[in-house]
Simulated assay, not measured.
Amino acid sequence: MKRTITWVLMAFLLLSTDTSIAQQKTTTMTTQERDYAIRFLKETETDVLNSVKGLSEAQLKFKPAANKWSAEECIKHIAAAEKELWAMAVPVLKQPANPEKRTDIKFTDEQLVKAVEDRSHQSKTITALEPDNSPYKSVAEALNAFKKNRDKLIVFINSTQENLRNHVVVLPVGTYDLYQFILLISAHSNRHTQQIEEVKVNNSFPQY
């Protein structure tokens, strides 16, 4: 089964917890939060770029099985998801803060990241984010788009004075504050970087 963090996978994030989400900070980002988000975004960006650095065309296109993604397909998916997930968050920033919705958040930042990165949970992506439907025609094009969108997000986090904790995204499968949503984007790329590494250690992976 093809795997990704999309709406079906997000359902896995609705983990039960005794942690009171109301205890989350409801002021603008702290220095620690801002630094952590930027570091996480930069680290996962580097990991994505390094995961396919120096790979040949044959290596990029190698699929461990007919129903598995190649490294190329993973990169195209990462790039498309990077753009689409953040596009979902932008309109929320333009709406009035809705901190009253925070009581519907059912997981901490740490639980969210762990759930997204956990590849023992598998799910099929939505059609729009299937690699075959990617707007990117090559790995180079996808990586270029990914880097540009990721760098824009890092600049935003570094400079914004928005109260991200009080802007809450309410989806059919769960509720997230925008700070968490940014962590989700970063963790999502990490999830698929792991998938690429799994492809590369396959016994049939081309040597050249």
Rank of each mutant, 00 (worst) to 15 (best):
F146E: 03
E198L: 14
N133T: 05
K94A: 14
T127M: 12
V113T: 11
L153G: 02
L153I: 05
D132Q: 12
S186E: 05
L184M: 15
T127K: 14
V90D: 08
A87G: 11
K106V: 05
L183M: 09
T108A: 07
V90Y: 06
N163D: 10
A89W: 03
Y136M: 02
F156A: 09
I154Q: 08
V90F: 03
L183N: 08
L164I: 07
Q180L: 04
V90K: 15
S159C: 00
N190Y: 10
A128K: 14
V139L: 01
S186F: 02
L184F: 15
K83M: 07
A142F: 02
Q122L: 13
R119C: 00
V155H: 10
P135Q: 04
A97D: 15
A145T: 10
A115F: 07
H167G: 09
L153C: 05
F107V: 11
R102D: 00
Q180S: 02
N163P: 09
S186Y: 01
F156M: 13
Q122M: 13
A145D: 13
Q194E: 12
R191I: 05
A87P: 05
D109V: 07
R102K: 15
N158F: 00
A97R: 10
S120L: 07
P131Q: 06
R150Y: 01
T103L: 08
A89C: 13
Q194M: 08
A89S: 14
V169H: 08
V169I: 13
S134D: 05
V168D: 04
Q95D: 12
L143W: 03
I154F: 06
K114W: 04
K124T: 15
H121Y: 12
E117Y: 06
V168F: 03
E197W: 07
Q122R: 15
V199R: 09
K106Y: 00
F107C: 04
Y176A: 07
S159N: 14
S138G: 05
V201A: 11
S123M: 07
S186D: 04
V173G: 02
L153F: 07
E100Y: 02
P172Q: 10
L112I: 00
P135I: 02
I126Q: 12
E110H: 10
H167D: 08
W86G: 00
I157S: 07
I196D: 09
R119M: 04
K137P: 05
H121C: 04
L183S: 09
H192W: 08
A187R: 11
D132M: 09
L143E: 06
I185N: 10
K114S: 15
V92C: 07
S134A: 03
Y136S: 03
A79T: 04
K147Q: 12
N144K: 15
V139E: 03
F181E: 04
E141A: 14
V168Y: 08
L143F: 05
L153V: 02
L85N: 07
I157A: 14
I182M: 14
Q195R: 06
N190I: 00
K124P: 07
H188S: 04
N166C: 12
V139I: 10
K152D: 15
S186R: 05
E100F: 01
K152G: 11
T175Q: 06
S186W: 02
V113Y: 00
S189A: 14
L183H: 09
Y136G: 01
E197N: 13
L85A: 05
N190M: 12
Q111F: 02
R119H: 06
A81V: 15
P172N: 12
G174H: 12
E117Q: 15
K114H: 13
K101L: 09
E82H: 09
S138K: 06
N202C: 06
Q95C: 06
